[in-house]
Simulated scan of single mutants.
Amino acid sequence: MLDTLQHIISDLTPYLHQYGYFILALAIAVEGVGIPAPGQSFLIVSGILAAGGQMSLPGVLLVAGLSAFSGNCIGYIIGLRFGDVLLKKGWVKPQTERRLHGFIERYGMIALLLSRFIEGLKQTMCIGCGIAKLPLKTFLLGNLLATVSWVLLFGVGPAILRHEMTPLLTFYHSHQLLMWAIGTLVVLGGAVAIWLWQKKRSANSC
């Protein structure tokens, strides 16, 4: 894993030196419209470079946050306005649409929040929210929570832990099951909190 991180840093740093915040914004934004791109990797490397003074950390966080949020909104609008076209063209299968409807209607913002950290879902969930006609207010709030959580974890985290990255990755490599268990508990805890909030809000509106 350490070798993988060093490989990512060495591969992406020249692009950030040459194109700066533009390549960071582009890579992150296009993921929201269903196009696979190394947005998360660019964010991690940008955070590390910012910690070394080669980029501005506030600039990195602002660009990443705005790009993620706006890219997701574009994906939502595409799903909302052109969902029928995607289905007719066969780009979205009917069974996939049914699963999306069921999943999003059941979990709402929780699905949007968790998908931000899962490759594949991260690129398609916002389009799926549009196809499933997720209410705009629910989408915007979920998008905001997902974007802020993601930017803080993968932007601020690497900047703060730059010097501790090697021992942390070594520890992670030696205790992967423990770290995954802790991460799962944290995510589930946040998901349950959002679900309880939604349930309480629904009860109050009745």
Results as ranks from 00 to 15, higher is better:
51 A>L: 11
36 P>Q: 01
63 V>S: 01
27 A>Q: 04
65 G>R: 04
120 G>M: 05
52 G>V: 09
76 Y>A: 02
133 K>P: 09
90 G>Q: 00
137 K>M: 14
134 L>R: 02
36 P>L: 03
36 P>V: 04
115 S>F: 05
72 N>R: 14
77 I>C: 02
56 S>P: 09
132 A>N: 08
33 V>R: 07
29 A>P: 13
106 R>N: 15
30 V>S: 02
65 G>W: 12
14 P>T: 04
84 D>G: 09
107 Y>G: 03
37 A>E: 08
56 S>D: 13
126 C>T: 14
28 I>G: 06
89 K>D: 11
28 I>Q: 04
100 L>D: 01
99 R>T: 13
136 L>G: 07
138 T>N: 05
12 L>E: 02
30 V>P: 07
95 Q>S: 13
120 G>R: 06
77 I>M: 11
73 C>D: 07
112 L>V: 15
111 A>S: 14
36 P>D: 04
90 G>Y: 00
24 L>Q: 08
51 A>K: 02
64 A>Y: 13
29 A>T: 11
135 P>Y: 11
131 I>P: 05
73 C>P: 03
94 P>E: 00
59 G>T: 07
14 P>D: 05
117 F>I: 04
50 A>P: 07
17 H>N: 11
133 K>Q: 14
10 S>H: 12
138 T>F: 00
40 Q>F: 04
110 I>A: 14
100 L>Q: 03
109 M>H: 05
107 Y>L: 06
67 S>W: 05
60 V>Q: 07
70 S>G: 11
96 T>G: 05
45 V>T: 11
138 T>H: 08
90 G>K: 00
35 I>V: 15
133 K>G: 08
15 Y>Q: 09
38 P>L: 10
103 F>V: 13
116 R>G: 03
31 E>R: 01
109 M>Y: 03
46 S>Y: 05
13 T>C: 06
58 P>L: 15
44 I>C: 09
26 L>G: 08
64 A>V: 10
99 R>Y: 14
72 N>D: 15
88 K>W: 08
11 D>M: 14
128 G>A: 03
31 E>V: 01
123 Q>C: 13
48 I>R: 01
94 P>N: 02
96 T>P: 00
35 I>T: 10
78 I>N: 00
41 S>G: 13
113 L>N: 12
46 S>K: 01
31 E>M: 00
98 R>F: 06
108 G>R: 12
134 L>I: 05
12 L>T: 04
93 K>W: 04
54 Q>S: 14
64 A>K: 06
115 S>G: 04
39 G>T: 11
96 T>N: 06
39 G>Q: 04
23 I>M: 10
84 D>E: 15
75 G>F: 10
107 Y>K: 09
123 Q>F: 12
51 A>F: 04
131 I>K: 01
87 L>Q: 06
109 M>P: 00
116 R>K: 13
75 G>E: 06
99 R>K: 14
134 L>G: 01
40 Q>W: 09
115 S>V: 08
34 G>L: 01
71 G>Y: 05
26 L>H: 11
123 Q>T: 14
14 P>F: 08
111 A>R: 02
23 I>Q: 05
137 K>C: 10
89 K>R: 15
135 P>H: 11
136 L>Y: 11
129 C>R: 03
49 L>P: 08
59 G>H: 02
